[in-house]
């Protein structure tokens, strides 16, 4: 069964149609890359998956459970927080919380979530220790053992983005989304972020990656989607879409990349 199914997603801002009938699905452990020029709707699609935007129509299912259905969706959804937790989102601009250290950034949301447990008061100390241990493990995995007590402004962009990835992983999302995670980084810092993403892909983390890193998309993806003007122009394996595109628009887009 597919872990994620998106069917007929539509989204407009005012009169601008940003997403026009987007459908795709992916299996557990797959990496899906979404490519396309700016304004093609990639980011909006990710934001819809994370419920930062509400689609106008369409269905989103995770593990067979319908999280969103445009026909029955209400304006105020009380369960939206719970639904968001199926997805993690790594932003282009990191969006770390500046007043917290790296490890505090990773722990915060999980701690706040733990407070909602009925047994929080009795188990407070134990829970906090577990959360800290998990955060330490994640930062170590990101190669940041020595920067746990640093504040975001003391870290390089690449380090910030790795903290942001750890922060998202702390909540153990089913699907991890990346919104151009390396676009705000200097080229020499891009590599360290792509390296940890590669590791995640190898460990069969289910990932949706909006990216302009074509070589990376070719390497890690099981599936590639090329979007243009709010529609999926082409989708398939990286070989199909990136090496032997069928559509003229895909070819034009990729040609611009190989020129550089």
């Amino acid at each position: 069964m597919a872990i994620l199914e998106a069917e007929h997603i539509c989204k407009s801002f005012g009169k601008t149609e940003v997403l026009k009938d987007i459908s795709f699905s992916m299996e557990q452990g797959q990496a899906l890359s979404i490519i396309g020029s700016s304004g093609s709707g990639k980011t909006t699609l990710l934001r819809c998956l994370n419920f930062l935007e509400t689609p106008d129509a369409g269905v989103i299912r995770v593990n067979g459970e319908t999280l969103f259905d445009g026909k029955t969706a209400k304006k105020k959804d009380r369960n939206i927080r719970k639904k968001r937790l199926h997805f993690g989102l790594v932003f282009q601009s990191f969006n770390l919380f500046p007043q917290y250290t790296a490890i505090e950034n990773v722990m915060l949301a999980k701690e706040l979530l733990a407070r909602e447990r009925p047994d929080y008061k009795e188990k407070k100390r134990q829970l906090r220790e577990e959360i800290r241990a998990q955060a330490e493990g994640l930062l170590k995995q990101m190669g940041l053992s020595d920067r746990m007590g640093s504040y975001p402004h003391q870290l390089s962009g690449g380090q910030c983005q790795r903290v942001a990835i750890a922060r998202t992983l702390a909540l153990e999302p089913d699907i991890l989304c990346f919104d151009e995670p390396t676009s705000a980084l200097d080229p020499e810092l891009t590599g360290e972020v792509l390296k940890v993403m590669r590791q995640l892909a190898q460990r069969d983390m289910t990932m949706v990656i909006v990216t302009h890193e074509m070589a990376f998309a070719r390497d890690v993806s099981d599936q590639v989607i090329f979007m243009d003007g709010g529609v999926i122009v082409e989708q398939g394996t990286p070989e199909e879409v990136l090496n032997a595109p069928k559509e003229e628009r895909t070819r034009q887009f990729l040609a611009r990349f190989s020129d550089r």
Partner: peptide, 15 residues
């Protein structure tokens, strides 16, 4: 305060 702060919090399931 940048909008990204609110969005990061929301994406992390915070109220």
């Amino acid at each position: 305060v940048p909008v990204g702060q609110e969005e990061a919090g929301l994406a992390l399931g915070m109220k």
